[in-house]
Design a protein around this nucleic acid. Structure first.
Length: 109
DNA sequence: GCAATGACTGGTA
DNA sequence: TTACCAGCCATTG
């Protein structure tokens, strides 16, 4: 992955831009963002979040099975409680209900 | 150029 | 339900 001290690449900025657009109470999977961008893959999105994700609502980006990134589960849960994110009885995010498909075309810049 | 690594994913046991 | 495995893709050493 890129060195943390290097500046964000154009690809990274696009990933972070999408994450900032995720509405409260909604989430996206790493693979969803990669597919929305049309380039790279889930690993690349995860790498971007690991290095530069600190400046965006990273808790709205989770794995495809609804579990947040390792080590961030506790912090993520508090955010979900504050935003009213749909949770499954098992404690994971309800992807079927909370999954965000991306910005509406009418919102496109 | 090669091997290792990682906030991933989907399938199988 | 969890655990393990193979595939995936860009970056690092």
């Amino acid at each position: 992955m890129p060195r943390p001290d290097s500046h964000p690449t154009e690809y990274a900025e696009r990933v972070l831009d999408i994450v900032e657009r995720i509405p409260p109470g909604r989430v996206m999977a790493y693979g969803d963002i990669a597919e929305l961008l049309g380039e790279g893959g889930p690993r690349q999105v995860g790498t971007v979040m690991a290095v530069w994700g600190g400046g965006v609502p990273w808790w709205r980006v989770i794995r495809a099975d609804g579990t947040p990134a390792p080590g961030l589960e506790v912090r993520a849960r508090s955010h979900y409680a504050a935003e009213g994110t749909p949770l499954r009885p098992s404690g994971r995010v309800d992807m079927a209900a909370a999954r965000w498909e991306g910005p509406d075309p009418s919102e496109a810049v």
